[in-house]
């Protein structure tokens, strides 16, 4: 499992596909927001937590159709499926690598990008924390969606159609936490639901993803 994780991370760093692009996409999204909403500092500060969560979510989604796509096209996935590595582990390793190359940098960059939207650093800390706990769920759900749309040509649009509704609970709890922090409320365990979704996704999605991979390789 570790070897597959390392290989995926190395590949995405070398090919420059996922690693930088999601981050840059996130930055551009943040830069475009004030153009759409006006430069009013207080308005921006008010909506910044939600915007940053939404931006991170879209950046995660954008890169998820390549998680299995490359390996499916060049035959690696078939070879992996016949190797001693169970497909559940293949899925987990790939989702973890996706998180490491997109979710993690996005979470760390979010408070910095938040400065552009007049988000104060304390709330930025909570944002970073909530993203660190929530983006693994986004990667897991995105990878699950990718196993479903594997054989579909130009499956990117279909993938977002399937995955975005599944993102709703994570987004709700994530944005809720940061919005509460922006209003000066204590954290009071509001990170727990986010963590629970991530852990729940780790528990159930490998099983279903392996099933979908098996069906797609038939």
């Amino acid at each position: 499992m570790i070897q597959l994780f390392t290989r995926d991370v190395v590949l995405s760093v070398r090919s420059g596909g996922g690693f930088g692009l999601a981050l840059v996409f996130f930055l551009i999204l943040v830069v475009l927001m004030p153009f759409a909403l006006g430069p009013d500092q207080s308005v921006l500060a008010k909506i910044a937590p939600g915007l940053l969560w939404l931006g991170a979510l879209l950046a995660c989604l954008l890169s998820s159709d390549r998680i299995f796509g490359m390996d499916y096209e060049d035959g690696t996935l078939e070879l992996l499926a016949t190797s001693p590595l169970p497909l559940e582990s293949v899925y987990l390793a790939k989702a973890a690598a996706h998180w490491f190359t997109t979710g993690l940098p996005l979470s760390l960059a979010a408070p910095v990008f938040g400065i552009l939207l007049n988000l104060n650093l304390e709330v930025g800390g909570v944002l970073c924390l909530s993203l660190l706990l929530g983006t693994p769920a986004l990667s897991l759900i995105g990878s699950f969606g990718a196993t479903l749309t594997l054989g579909v040509r130009r499956g990117g649009l279909l993938l977002s159609l399937l995955v975005l509704p599944l993102y709703i609970p994570t987004l709700i709890f994530g944005a809720l936490t940061v919005n509460a922090a922006a209003l000066g409320k204590e954290l009071d365990g509001s990170l727990i639901p986010i963590l629970a979704i991530t852990l729940g996704a780790i528990a159930i999605l490998p099983f279903f993803s392996a099933m979908a991979l098996r069906a797609n390789l038939q």
Binding site: L148, P169, I172, P193, I204, M211, A212
Partner: peptide, 24 residues
Amino acid sequence: DLTSVLALVGAVFAVLSRYAVIFW
């Protein structure tokens, strides 16, 4: 197979969304 997997996972997340939305 694929739609069945989606329906099952979707059901879990639909229920989850329901409670998340009440909370929200």
